[in-house]
Amino acid sequence: MLPDWPRALGTPQLSGVLKAQPEDFVVEEVFPVEFSDDGEFDWLWIEKRGDNTEYVARQLARLAGVQPKAVTYSGQKDRQAITRQWFCVHLPGKNFPAWDVPEAETWKILRKGRHRQKLRLGSHRYNRFTLCLSALGGDLDELGHRAAQLSQGVPNYFGEQRFGHQGGNISACQQWFAGTLTPSRFERSMYLSAARSYLFNTVLANRVLDGSWNTGLEGEIYALRDSGSVFSAERNEETLARLASGDIQATGPLFGKAGRLVVSAAAASAEEAVYSLHADLCEGLLKHGLSMERRALRLIPQDFQWQFTGNKSLELSFSLPRGCFATALVRELIRYPLAS
C-alpha cells in the first residue's frame, strides 16, 4: 500500500468520486503542430476513451504494417479518461495510409498530416485538464475555500497511477533489485520510474510536514518556472521573493548518480535521510545507470478555473507542465477512492 502523502491544506473532510466515467477526466496535449507535408512520418491527432497509450500505439503499428517501435508519442495518458494526443508513425518510402480505424475501437483519428520530423518523447510542454468531481459529500463551503487556494500551488507529487495497483510497482522493483524477479524490458523501465518517483514523493512528504516545500532550504537547487532549468543560489531575500512569486521552485531528487549540481546543507540532510531508509532502491537505481535529475517540489496550475455544476459536483479546468499529475490538485480538495 502507498502512504497517504501529507497535504499542504491538511486532510480534507470532504469525499467524492474522481473518474466516475471517462468523460469526467479529459486531458489534451497543448502542442500546436504545423505539418511540412513531406517526409517519412505520419502524425495523427487521436482521441481515445478507456484505452492506454501503448495499446493505441500497437494498433497503429498493426494498421500501418510496421513494427511497434516505429510508432512514437510525446507522453503517456490516463486510461480511464478521454484524452487527445499526437502519435507519429515512421513510414519511409510508403504512401499515406488510409488509416481506417475499425468501428469497434474506442479511439479515433481527428487530424492527420505528414511531417519530416519525428515526434519524440517529451515534445509537448503542457497538458490541459477538464475534470468533474462527483458525488461530493461534506461541507461544500470548505470545498470552495480549498479550491480558491489551489492557484497558489500544491505539492508536486507523482500520482498513484505511477506506482501500479496498491503500489505494486515498488514491491516488484524491490524483488527485481533483489534478484528474485525477471521483468520484461517495458516492466524494467516502469519499475525504475516508480522507484525514483517513490523517493521523490517521500522527500516531498517530509518537506510538506516541515513547511519547507514552498519556501526552500539552505543548500537548495532551484528550478525556473518556465524552462525548468536548475541552478543553485543562496537563500536570501531575493530568492525568497522569487519563490513567493512563483518565478522559481525548490526541487527534489529524481535519484541517480550525482551530477554537476548537488544540494548541500539542510537540503542535502533532508534527502539523505530518505536515502538511508530506502538504501535498496538507491543502490538498485545506481546499479542500473540512472543519473540524478531534479523536479520542482511545487506545482502551480495555469489558467485554473473551478465552478460548481450541481448540488454535488465540481468542475475543474487547468493546465499543468508535462509530467505533472492532476491528482496532486484533486487530493487537496477531496478524499476519493483509488482506482483498482
Results as ranks from 00 to 15, higher is better:
9 L>M: 07
16 G>H: 00
16 G>Y: 03
17 V>E: 00
21 Q>N: 08
35 F>V: 12
39 G>Q: 07
41 F>D: 01
42 D>K: 07
44 L>E: 03
46 I>G: 02
47 E>W: 11
49 R>Q: 14
49 R>M: 15
50 G>S: 03
52 N>H: 08
53 T>Y: 02
53 T>N: 09
53 T>G: 02
73 Y>H: 07
75 G>F: 15
75 G>E: 03
76 Q>I: 14
76 Q>Y: 07
76 Q>C: 02
81 A>E: 07
88 C>A: 09
89 V>L: 01
91 L>E: 01
92 P>C: 13
103 E>W: 07
123 S>F: 08
125 R>G: 13
125 R>C: 15
126 Y>L: 11
130 T>L: 11
130 T>H: 12
136 L>D: 00
144 G>P: 08
157 Y>H: 13
164 G>Q: 11
168 G>H: 08
177 F>K: 11
182 T>L: 12
187 E>N: 13
188 R>A: 09
189 S>H: 07
193 S>T: 10
198 Y>C: 01
207 R>V: 15
208 V>N: 09
209 L>N: 01
223 A>N: 05
225 R>M: 04
231 F>Y: 10
236 N>S: 15
241 A>R: 01
247 D>H: 11
248 I>L: 11
253 P>Y: 00
254 L>Y: 08
259 G>Q: 07
266 A>P: 09
267 A>N: 03
269 S>P: 10
273 A>M: 02
273 A>Y: 08
283 E>Y: 04
295 R>D: 10
297 L>G: 06
320 L>V: 06
326 A>T: 09
334 I>Q: 02
336 Y>H: 11
337 P>F: 04
